[in-house]
Write a protein that binds this DNA or RNA. Structure first.
Lengths: 208, 208
DNA sequence: CCCTGTCTGTGACCTTGATCACAGAGAGAG
DNA sequence: CTCTCTCTGTGATCAAGGTCACAGACAGGG
């Protein structure tokens, strides 16, 4: 945002709204009118859909310094928000009101570049998610999840419940699959913790 | 494209490549390097993913006057193409080579607007597809497909095979579901043809 | 009119993953 | 140390769809 013009920066400063959400708060429901562009300052937003039966499936998460692309497109094209959003950690968000955002987007090249990058990145992410959910079985999705969510040391701190929600699967099935991975010696499991022991067979599950 | 600057229009005219594809031709494979931005002039491109087992699922189609967003983002960000593309009808395509496109996108506001609109539209479409495939059962997907693909007179000209490919389902299951719809009097079926008789119960399948 | 190729209808069976129902851990609070 | 809560493991059962295997139905070419 350093690259905005003086007047743009001024406009932004005057209209930026800071907001705090506690952990596990529902923030947006599908069909809500969205008040503007969101930029996460601290914490994380989770964007997900709900099924007929009440099951959830996480579409993507918005980490610190990122923006929610659905909100961007809603602010630009006057759409209703197409999904649900909540938090699992304390989260601070900066909101640029729709009109301000639209005006910045019209006049500021830096803003155009920012939005374009965010959208193009989303297309990439979505493609991955889509092909995965459409074509891969749960086992492959889980393998991918473990690899992409592991810390450098190969550790993941998450309950089976949590993983199941992210993947839109049931807790029991995740438990069973993790059990299978463990029996094969690929991972070690503990309460709220998973350790990757041998990633190569997990990676093999992804390639095709 | 009328809104480009004189120099931009000149650049475009000199570098535009016209290409013709016959029906049912594979055009791009996943991982291919993409030569530039595509604009469909006549016919239709189908963008789809393949699963391990060889199953296909259509992500979206690019109709006349539309552009393929994957190709756009690939051209902009130097990515490999993330899906497969083929045709089912004779199709004419205009190709803007990557460097030309990048240069136009950098300098021409009209091009920036065009790309932004295409991306934002995709986000919207993807959202719909995603929530559907993630949350709805095949019956609802089929109902949606029939309604969105019917002509004004409520007619669809497509074989069960074709519908199955679009929905990433098997031909037999589509046949069975259509049979159920027919038995309930909602549709009439014929060889390569479906007629909607009573749309309201089909619409009911979508709302939840 | 027949022949052949593509659609369509159906039965049998299998796999995946959801759901229900518990039983046994860790782990923190008191 | 106990009590209670959440997390984990596992069996039984069920529904949706995919796969295999045909059989009939239509349509166009010769």
């Amino acid at each position: 945002m350093r690259e905005l013009s003086a007047s743009g920066r001024e406009l932004l400063r005057e209209n930026l709204i800071m907001q705090h959400f506690d952990a596990d708060t529902p923030i947006i429901r599908k069909g809500d009118q969205v008040s503007g562009a969101f930029i996460v300052l601290k914490g994380e937003l989770r964007v997900f859909t709900l099924s007929k039966q009440g099951g959830e499936a996480t579409l993507y998460t918005v980490a610190a310094d990122e923006t929610c692309i659905f909100a961007l497109t809603c602010a630009c094209r006057d759409m209703l928000y197409p999904a649900w959003v909540d938090t699992h950690t304390d989260t601070d968000v900066a909101i640029i009101p729709s009109e301000v955002f639209r005006s910045l987007h019209r006049t500021e090249p830096a803003m155009q570049r920012y939005v374009f990058d965010a959208l193009a990145g989303l297309v990439h992410d979505f493609t991955l998610t889509m092909s995965q959910t459409l074509t891969a079985d749960l086992q492959s999705c889980l393998a991918d999840y473990l690899i992409t969510h592991a810390s450098g040391a190969g550790l993941i701190f998450a309950s089976h419940e949590h993983i199941a929600r992210d993947l839109g699967a049931s807790r029991e099935t995740i438990s069973r699959l993790l059990g299978r991975f463990r029996d094969k010696g690929w991972i070690a499991t503990g309460r709220g913790k998973i350790e990757l022991l041998d990633t190569s067979p997990l990676v093999d599950l992804l390639e095709f």
